[in-house]
Design a protein around this nucleic acid. Structure first.
Lengths: 196, 196, 196, 196
DNA sequence: AATGAATGAGAGTTCATTCAT
DNA sequence: AATGAATGAACTCTCATTCAT
């Protein structure tokens, strides 16, 4: 009796999502260089012109992809384990990110593309700010850990946060190419941080 | 017979270099997405059609850019201080790379672009192999350092090399965006490695 | 049975008029070149598809606009002062037309557009015939004026009517651009006709 | 021996002219509404893309057409008979314009199209200024004629010039539709001006 | 009566590449 | 070696129109 209820959950809003995801995967596979609105439309099974019904402009579509990628990342990055000890929080954070890299390498490919593009398209510049937020979050974890004596007081939180981010950022490249190196680099980092 | 040889040292070879460099900078500024052969030609002061005399195909031009970028990198990466102690060698290696990032950020922007592209264009795949060479070089330095008691024997050379590479690779993004963070991350790494 | 008749006087006929007027103003502002059915529909507050309920085709809409413009013109051109002397009739005719130009310049802009288009769209060709009617009307006034000795017998009614029409037609362009020149030209004409 | 000299007088500059003329005729036949760059290119026998080699943009092509039309008009309007008496000058001016209308009705069709468009495209607004120049020229002829007693002193030069322009402007419409009316209107005007 | 979704035909424009000179 | 001219294929985007609901 509710069998056909599932056939179409959100009759029309689906399309925007479908298109965004399709574009997302095209970018992951071919880069911005290889993004063709017609292909995206075709993958969803609609006419190329119809895509413009949902995204007036190619840039609008791209913006939607970027928003999707960032929100996907943010979901995972969101601070968890609020009551745990700082080292535990940090390890949790790193392992969750690493797991995401394994499970959704495309996400990081796209984010890298976007990062590169952000340098020239000011509209996407707020993506760079995202890093500041990330940095701030790590610093606060580290500072708490220092004040709670988990880490020595001569550990510079800012520099350490920068090192963590830099290393993770670098792993992006490897996620697809040489995943084992990524894992090794991460475990090495965790030992340096004393959270292995 | 060699009197007029000095009049024009590399009459035409110059042009290939000029074009390669021009293309290099266009890619750094606008990415592969924004590379137009006409613009490259114009920057050198020749007609777009003439470019095809030197590079029959756009891909040929790109290949030349990639070769240029890699050779530029290799020059700096080439092992120096053969007689120095391993920690010294490692520090020298890192500082030279870092210096290059400061002085020629474009080089790393282009390398990142290429890296991304290498995933889909098999022709450029050999760039990835380059990383293996780099990794091997670091491993050999580390192994020598361990055997000479500069580093503890439980330091995994492979993982540490991976961490170093990953962190440096990640710095690429920051070279232009937040150079100070890069410096901080590097000094943090050097302290971890005990070579600060 | 007619109680609820007053609730909505012309339920749907209104819409046709609304749309016609909206299209009329779009043409006046942007010409045929800039006429978009969607914009017309939006100005009336309905969906673009709905417009096709009232006007199956864009051409149908245009035809309605033309009909509207002509009927508007005809209302003013309709012979008045049937009992007045011919010069009086002529002056009345001219001044009424001139007043219309001042008050509704859009009407003449649209008519000019239509005139231009009529040359290629035979459907609108009957607009040109309209001029014949106009010409005939002027000739009859002039002939009556000659036979009643208001004008000399050597005044060629056909040529004079043609001159009047031509001059008024030319004023169309000026109505918006340089209204004072139009007034001057008209008073000059009236003096030539001895009806100033 | 010089037979093949005539084959190609201006090897390349021809094309711009060819294209301008082709576009000119398309506009005359179908209006701005019906101007398609591909058709223009085809009429000259070149690929649609090649047109952009000469006119980067459709607007550039249109501008060239407008410039052509205006220069064509100016050539004829240029003051001649500098030593003749004012009435003679005026008659010459009118008859030359009328002749042009007969011989090149397309020119006036295009000019009307442009005039209409000038109202919305400010770039073409200088076309309207052209009328001021024309008006000034007529005023100076009339003023000279008045001071030399060819016309009564109560003839308002400004108003008369406006009437002349207006009437000629109106003839534009008729040039193609009903040429005989144009001729009649003109002769009527000449009699009013006493230059018949 | 009204709509959102969808479409096909085409528009202007871009671009790497070719070719005659 | 160098060029201007030319091209074909492709791209994004527009728009009147249709259709199921």
């Amino acid at each position: 009796m509710d069998a056909h209820d599932e056939e179409r959950p959100q009759p029309k809003h689906d399309r925007r999502e479908e298109l965004t995801l399709a574009a997302f995967h095209v970018i992951a596979r071919k880069g911005f260089e290889g993004l063709r609105v017609r292909e995206v439309a075709a993958q969803v099974g609609i006419n190329g012109a119809t895509l413009h019904h949902y995204f007036p402009t190619k840039e609008d579509l791209i913006r939607s992809v970027v928003a999707h990628a960032i929100s996907r990342l943010r979901t995972v990055m969101a601070g968890r384990l609020p009551d745990a000890a700082p080292p535990e929080q940090l390890r949790d954070h790193l392992s969750r990110l690493f797991q995401l890299m394994q499970e959704e390498p495309d996400l990081f490919v796209v984010l890298t593309e976007v990062n590169l593009r952000a340098r020239r398209t000011p509209v996407l510049a707020y993506l760079t700010e995202q890093n500041s937020v990330w940095h701030g979050m790590l610093v606060s974890i580290l500072e708490r850990g220092i004040s709670e004596k988990f880490w020595p007081s001569d550990l510079d939180p800012g520099a350490t946060a920068a090192a963590i981010i830099t290393l993770l950022e670098g792993m992006t490249f490897w996620a697809a190419t040489a995943p084992d190196w990524g894992a090794k680099a991460l475990s090495r980092l965790e030992r340096w941080l004393g959270i292995a």
